[in-house]
């Protein structure tokens, strides 16, 4: 079945083939929602599971996410307003003073691959920019990343600043020096151990809202 082929192309990290197959399915009149749910999102769910189990490696997960995203872009003009509505809006960035990009980008790609709209603010992001972006995009979630132990306090300061808004977004944190205990102490809503963990967490938090 062709939807299985799309699914397989994502798990085979073959972005070109994914795009080609998605176009073919659209041309054949397959229901857009089915392509999205049964092929693209289903494949990324499996990618997340396989990554967490250690079957897939990081570059494979990334290439799969890129293939999925490519397919989604082709699908997007055909989605109805409600179908096109993302699973949630996530503003992410690496906190002020920290120039590390990779972990945060990984999480961003996995979130996009799982149907979230991601606004990536990049690195060295001051608390004010997180706040402004969260408001401008009506974010459901703000994701903060830090790799340096020396920038963990900046993460705390950002959480504090975001919390000053009563109806603020949920806040998730991650990065090498961060752990569950730290997340709780600084008042974040959750800690993602790895990229799929961040996706699961984001889904849970959005469902709880």
């Amino acid at each position: 079945m062709a939807l299985d082929d799309i699914y397989d192309s994502i798990l085979g990290f073959d972005a070109e083939r994914t795009a080609e197959l998605v176009r073919a399915e659209l041309a054949a009149g397959t229901e857009v929602r089915a392509i999205l749910d049964e092929a693209l999102i289903a494949a990324m769910d499996e990618v997340g599971v396989q990554f967490s189990e250690g079957v897939l490696f990081v570059p494979e997960m990334l290439m799969a996410a890129m293939a999925m995203k490519g397919g989604l872009e082709i699908l997007r003009p055909h989605l109805s307003a409600s179908e096109a509505k993302p699973a949630g809006v996530v503003v992410i960035g690496t906190v002020k003073g920290d120039m590390h990009d990779i972990g945060k980008s990984l999480v961003g790609m996995m979130l996009e691959g799982s149907g979230f709209q991601v606004i990536d603010l990049g690195i060295d992001v001051p608390a004010e920019r997180f706040l402004a972006a969260a408001e401008a995009h009506q974010a459901d979630i703000v994701g903060l990343s830090a790799l340096l132990t020396t920038t963990m306090p900046a993460m705390q300061a950002t959480v504090t600043r975001l919390r000053e808004r009563n109806a603020g977004p949920r806040i998730i944190v991650g990065g090498a020096p961060v752990n569950q205990d730290f997340a709780e102490r600084i008042g974040a809503d959750g800690y993602g151990e790895d990229a799929p963990g961040a996706v699961a967490l984001a889904r849970r938090l959005v469902a709880d809202r």
């Binding site: 250690g54 490696f57 990229a195």
Partner: peptide, 9 residues
């Protein structure tokens, strides 16, 4: 070197 399973340095 990053651990390819996790991305950890």
């Amino acid at each position: 070197a990053l651990d390819m399973r996790t991305g950890r340095g």
